[in-house]
Amino acid sequence: MEQNGWGPPAVDLNFLKSGLGVLKLVQMVLSLAGFIIAEVTASPYNWEQMKAFEWISLTIFILTLAVFTTFLASWHKTEAVVRVNWPLVDFCHSALCTVLWSINLILGLISISWYWLAQEPGAIVDTILAIISLVTFWATVRMSYRRWHLFSPTPTIPYHYQHLGTEPYS
């Protein structure tokens, strides 16, 4: 979608309807929910773990929002950044967020294991959110990895030149 003149960016509705767009929306909602639940339910007993969980969730939300906005507004197709390998950027983002959610899962499990289950409902909910988020980010990593390997920024040599063993521009 092209944007003419000044005004709001063109919204790519195809991205919003795609599997990757839906996964990014779900990931943002889960990250924001994890942040809010950790903020509200952090008790003095596991304050450090829940604060770490909270900040990691907020970081993941901001990173995912940036990538989502870039793809939704079609900024990755503008002249200034057309040479960036966006499938690789998305793959690295998803891999980093998967590692961060793994840390959050460990923090949630530590919070649950140190105290009674009835004392820490927020830690239980955050651990469940971490598991669901890990699954969604793992799906995004797989999708992004496939898109990255299908992305071919350089032209390929036609078959008849490969067959003859000669270069077309010699």
Rank of each mutant, 00 (worst) to 15 (best):
L100P: 00
E120W: 00
A95C: 12
F53E: 07
E120H: 00
L134E: 08
E79K: 04
H93K: 08
L107Q: 03
F91Q: 10
V81C: 13
L96Q: 13
V82W: 15
I56C: 06
N46G: 03
V89F: 15
K77H: 08
A130F: 14
A118Q: 14
L16S: 12
I132F: 09
I56N: 11
N85R: 11
M28G: 09
T64P: 04
I106H: 02
P121M: 07
L13P: 04
S74F: 08
T136A: 09
L58E: 01
N104V: 06
L100W: 09
I62L: 12
A10F: 15
L23D: 01
G122K: 05
L100H: 05
S18H: 12
D90C: 14
P44Y: 10
T64F: 08
D126R: 04
M50T: 00
N46Q: 10
H76T: 12
C92E: 06
A38T: 03
K24R: 15
D90F: 09
Q119H: 10
G34Q: 03
A38S: 09
L23H: 12
P44C: 03
L129I: 08
K17D: 15
A33R: 00
F15K: 02
A52S: 12
S94A: 14
D90R: 13
I112N: 04
L30D: 00
S113P: 01
N46I: 11
I131M: 01
L20F: 15
V99S: 13
P9Y: 01
L32R: 10
Y45F: 09
F53D: 05
Y45M: 05
E39M: 09
W86E: 06
L16W: 01
I62F: 14
P9H: 02
R83E: 04
F91L: 15
I56E: 13
Y115S: 07
I56D: 07
A73N: 13
T41V: 06
H76P: 11
S31A: 07
D126H: 07
S57M: 05
A10N: 04
I37K: 02
P121N: 03
F15S: 01
L100T: 07
V22A: 11
I37T: 07
T41S: 12
S18I: 12
L58G: 04
I124T: 05
W47C: 05
G21W: 04
K51I: 14
A52G: 05
D12N: 09
L107S: 08
I36C: 08
F91R: 06
V22T: 11
C97H: 08
V99W: 14
N104F: 12
L96A: 04
